[in-house]
């Protein structure tokens, strides 16, 4: 009796067992290299005083324990207070951008879901901001928002709304400019996702509701929104995370030192790290942000997934 077939079967089983791991190995290695390792290095950096004096040799940076965290979270100190201010600005920015983007996206998806002449044109038109290179789009906005030659002031003056001499990129207006640009960039994504979600709702359901006397608003409330719930769950989370971490919009509009009203957290951290050259403190703020986003994401998924399961 030969042991060949037995060995072969065993070999085959072990190969089969190994196959999934081999297939995902490249992804795991890359994930470790690109995300996990830099993240862990960032966490380590937050515990050391990595300033300009040590960046040529990181290992000599002095261990500072939690002092950077204490500094960031001491809201009575100017540094902690500016971090808190930045956090508050970011929260308001995120709520406005996500909320308005979702409303615009939902409205447009509902209108363009129905068949009518020119639907394809409008669908394409609405996706232009999403398809446009992000830097080109924001730079165009920064030109439009200039005081003297900007299109925004020109239009507002033509309409008699203002005298055409408003500043849009400094002072408190800077915040609203940033919100408008971020909505312009984000809402097509909401539109695209919701439109895709709407395609999966059978027309029969609406027909039956109409027969039962449900109007448009009732149909939206009792059919559309519940059916879009899985799409909304993921999309709102993604929009929230993208907006909260948004760096491109303020950086391209205002540069590395935005006005106080537009000092959102990603640029604030960038400033501490690359303008003030305090990478330890910048990393500590990044870790605090990471923890905050993990907690919010966890709670969000816990609450809404539980409700979905019950439903």
């Amino acid at each position: 009796m030969s042991s060949g077939p037995h060995v072969k079967r065993a070999g085959g089983r072990s190969t089969r067992r190994l196959t999934p791991y081999l297939l995902i190995a490249p992804a795991i290695v890359l994930e470790l290299l690109i995300h996990i390792v830099p993240m862990l290095v960032g966490v380590w950096m937050s515990f050391v005083g990595l300033t300009q004096s040590y960046i040529a040799n990181w290992s000599t940076a002095p261990w500072e324990g939690l002092s950077s965290y204490r500094l960031a979270l001491d809201f009575s100190s100017p540094i902690g207070n500016s971090f808190l201010h930045s956090f508050e600005v970011t929260c308001l920015y995120t709520v406005l951008v996500v909320g308005i983007s979702w409303t615009f996206g939902m409205s447009a998806a509902l209108v363009l879901h129905r068949n009518f002449t020119g639907r394809g044109f409008f669908r394409t038109l609405f996706l232009v901001p999403y398809a446009m290179p992000i830097y080109a789009g924001i730079m165009t906005w920064s030109f439009m928002l200039q005081r003297d030659n900007g299109l925004v002031n020109h239009v507002l003056k033509s309409l008699g709304v203002t005298n055409g001499e408003s500043f849009w990129l400094i002072g408190s207006n800077a915040f609203w400019s940033m919100v408008v640009v971020a909505i312009w960039r984000s809402w097509p994504f909401a539109f695209l996702m919701l439109l895709a979600g709407l395609q999966n709702i059978p027309d029969d359901v609406y027909d039956a509701a109409a027969v039962d006397g449900a109007g448009v608003w009732k149909q939206i409330r009792y059919i559309t929104l519940p059916a879009l719930r899985p799409v909304n769950l993921v999309m709102i989370l993604m929009l929230f995370l993208w907006t909260f971490n948004d760096f491109n919009t303020p950086f391209v509009l205002f540069g590395a030192q935005p006005p106080k009203s537009a000092d959102i957290i990603s640029v604030h951290i960038y400033g501490a790290s690359f303008v003030n050259w305090d990478f330890g403190f910048g990393s500590a703020m990044s870790v605090i942000l990471l923890v905050f986003l993990l907690v919010v994401t966890g709670l969000y998924l816990l609450i809404f997934n539980r409700r979905s399961t019950r439903a």
Partner: peptide, 28 residues
């Protein structure tokens, strides 16, 4: 920016702004 858009900064406004700038120097 304050001068261009609102009231001209006073000595105390300037001192407060410079104090904030100085406080930010602490960590580095």
């Amino acid at each position: 920016a304050q001068a261009a858009t609102g009231t001209p900064p006073t000595d105390s406004d300037i001192k407060a702004a410079l104090q904030q700038a100085q406080d930010k120097m602490t960590p580095a």
